[in-house]
Amino acid sequence: MLQVKDLHVTVEGNEILKGLTLTINAGEVHAIMGPNGAGKSTLSAVIAGKDGYEVTQGTVTFEGKDVLEMEIEERAQAGLLLGFQYPVEIPGVKNIYLLKSALNAQRVARGEGEMPAPEFMKLVKEKLGYMKMDASFLQRAVNEGFSGGEKKRNEILQMLVLQPKLAMLDEIDSGLDIDAMKVVADGVNSLRAEDRAILLVTHYQRLLDYIVPDQVHVLVDGRIVKTGDAELAKQLEANGYEGIEESVA
């Protein structure tokens, strides 16, 4: 589904990713772990198309298409969706309006036509229930005045409504208490499907107790230095990243 080959990325002259290679197949859940500054968030940001990241070498393909050639919105329309670590506030724009615009933009781009309003409302209400969110969320401005936990839940709500093929979640666990993390993890788990892949970027192992990954990659200094199954994350928890760095060195 997603193939990243020898990816080199520079931000303001500093090389952050230094030859990253990664393959994600449909149905899989991958976790990328690593110390601060290793380039974890850079990977998902580059795939999503954020400005300010210069790809100097390597390729990213999604279902055979060159992702780096696509506009930001085209990537989302193709089924690549990024859940933000720090979702931005958009004053005056209702949450429900953003959801509807996004869903319909994606559907129209795929030639499916806009979803009829009653069907849309039914879909959203069902997903809201899943995320244990009150309907009043829909009428509030996007992320405005949301607590940290509410913002993260809102990101997952968008995932549930937009149903991407590849969901990339950047530090979706940061700043969550244990109850909120369970709700978020339940939401993510409900996304698991044969035809969908999930890429988790996280600093801590604890999220992976709730969302058990198929593969864990350790990212250190812009490269994946080790890949394993969920057990690897537990080892990291016990020994820290330094142990890995030493063993690689």
């Binding site: 198309g49 919105e73 989302a76 931005v88 004053p91 005056g92 953003l98 615009s101 933009a105 937009l162």
Partner: peptide, 26 residues
């Protein structure tokens, strides 16, 4: 960041601008 957020949801840049500006004027 607001533009990127909207676009990364599949909304075109032009629609994203109008959404943000209309929100600003609400």
């Amino acid at each position: 960041d607001q533009l990127f957020y909207c676009q990364s949801r599949g909304i075109s840049e032009e629609d994203a601008v109008s959404m943000i500006v209309n929100g600003f004027c609400k």
